[in-house]
Design a protein around this nucleic acid. Structure first.
Lengths: 121, 121
DNA sequence: CTGAATCCTTGACGATACTG
DNA sequence: CAGTATCGTCAAGGATTCAG
């Protein structure tokens, strides 16, 4: 059973539930990159998230794993190699992420900020 | 100029931006209710958000107002009457909210939780 | 390369009471 | 009715260092 976090409380409101799952500083972007790029390694992901410490990245990844959004595959090699990929469940939110990306880009533009392109690595 | 909050920092990533705007315990649901019900009063909104204190509701509403998602109309009557409604900008995220509602409902069902219906008041 | 350990800051959010 | 005021908690997230 996935470990629950603080904001998972009683009334099962669908919107609140959805937001709780992708809340967390980088979860949305992580899922987005995995959607676009497919399988990614830890540092590969890390390079795409300027300002995210490894500690926090690890935490967010673990939570996404607990919530069955991603899988974590460890290869027994030296140096270590760990790959992250979306599960079926993880792929199912892709439409929402894409819409958020589009909407957010337009929002940024309306405010005169050029959104950084979120393209494949 | 809208007051910015802590998590608005440098790299203008569209997804991060979108998430930041609807982060906050109840913002998503507030916007959802306003989308479905149109104009709503403070206590009307409050009744739909069990567990949300007036203090927090006020805060979230002010932030949504600062971000130009909603308007706040005060009527000079006794007893006081304040109405909240979506702006054009606020209406533009409706598709995302609807998708989140649908996706979340399915997610809750997969976990054996019956989502509470988010219908009009 | 992929983290874990440790320590710390801060701000989101809660509880309760009160008011024009 | 629609908030404010005050006080408090707690966990998310940051900084830095170390390790298999």
């Amino acid at each position: 059973m996935p470990k629950r976090r603080s904001y998972d409380e009683a009334p099962p409101c669908a919107i609140v539930a959805t937001l709780n799952l992708i809340n967390g500083r980088w979860k949305g972007v992580i899922l987005y990159y995995l959607t676009v790029n497919g399988t990614m390694r830890f540092n590969e992901l890390h390079r795409h998230l300027p300002g995210c410490t490894p500690r926090l990245l690890t935490k967010q990844l673990r939570e996404l794993e607990d919530d069955c959004f991603i899988t974590r595959t460890v290869y027994a090699v030296v140096p270590p190699k760990v790959e992250y990929a979306l599960t079926e469940e993880g792929r199912s939110i892709a439409p929402i992420l894409m819409q958020m990306n589009d909407w957010g880009a337009r929002w940024l533009q309306r405010r005169g900020l050029r959104p950084q392109s979120n393209e494949a690595a």
